[in-house]
């Protein structure tokens, strides 16, 4: 079984978000990037578990510049066999999906795994787009995956319960919580990561459809005002005069 896991870089969760160039660019300065947790904890680790059980290979693929090398090596340290980096700044979801789909067309894989979303832009789009471009099946928000020959059984969390689906390989999935437990890479893995192959593939020329106009931070939360339950007048006055909602 050949697994391809899509990984992207994301700012560490404690990052202070700021913008530059008149709020048109994300300020990368001093930002520590990590492997997007959904890609790492769920998609990659489940692919590794299945490889350990059934045999095969796990390749990670990333669309990004050289500044993604560190997160690629982290994925290799956790246990991926090799990596592919498509040498381009990711522009939007469709751009990324086209790059990956193009690579998959040229290199046979049985299963493409993505995280359910990347924790910076939260698009949740790339997986579905890859499946569309390849004309493969797609299971989103999968919380479990079992393989039996070319048949895969997946659970999806839906409102109020679970849905179990069966799908034939090859297909694409997006992984959500429950799929696997985060793995801490060990010393051996970290040292081996240096020597594992990382193929750098030139960008596949394609049109991009969106351009970011501007960013805006959410308004700062104001303090909470506590009104005593028997002081309804004050509550009404505040809602009317300050919050201006009634």
């Amino acid at each position: 079984m050949k697994f391809l896991v899509c990984i992207s870089k994301a700012p560490d969760t404690t990052t202070k978000i700021a913008f530059t160039d008149n709020n048109t660019k994300f300020n990368n300065d001093k930002v520590v990037f990590i492997v997007n947790p959904y890609d790492e904890w769920y998609a990659l680790v489940r692919a590794l578990e299945l490889k350990e059980k059934l045999g095969g290979t796990v390749t990670v693929i990333n669309v990004g510049a050289t500044d993604c090398d560190a997160i690629i090596r982290k994925a290799l340290a956790i246990g991926a066999d090799d990596a592919v980096r498509i040498d381009a700044e990711p522009i939007d979801a469709m751009f990324v999906a086209k790059q990956i789909a193009q690579y998959v067309k040229a290199n046979a894989y049985d299963l493409v795994l993505c995280g359910k979303e990347t924790i910076d832009y939260n698009g949740s789009e790339v997986g579905g787009m890859i499946a569309g471009l390849l004309d493969w099946g797609y299971v989103s928000l999968a919380s479990s995956l079992e393989l039996n020959g070319d048949l895969a059984t997946l659970n999806r969390e839906i409102a109020g319960g679970y849905e179990t689906v069966v799908v034939k390989t090859p297909f694409v999935l997006s992984a959500a919580k429950g799929m696997a437990e985060a793995r801490i890479p060990n010393m051996r893995g970290i040292m081996a990561a240096r020597t594992k192959p990382v193929a750098v593939v030139p960008v596949f020329a394609c049109e991009n459809y969106t351009t970011i106009l501007s960013y805006e931070l959410p308004k700062e939360k104001t303090g909470v005002k506590l009104v005593s339950p028997d002081n309804v007048d004050e509550l009404v006055s505040l809602l009317h005069n300050e919050a201006k909602v009634i």
Binding site: A70, R73, K74, A77, A182, I184, P185, N186, M187, I190, M191, A193, R194
Partner: peptide, 17 residues
């Protein structure tokens, strides 16, 4: 270097989790 940072992160993740 990157490898040292990764090892440090590993130790930190282990302690934290």
């Amino acid at each position: 270097n990157e490898e040292q940072k990764m090892m440090a992160q590993m130790a930190e993740d282990f302690i934290d989790s």
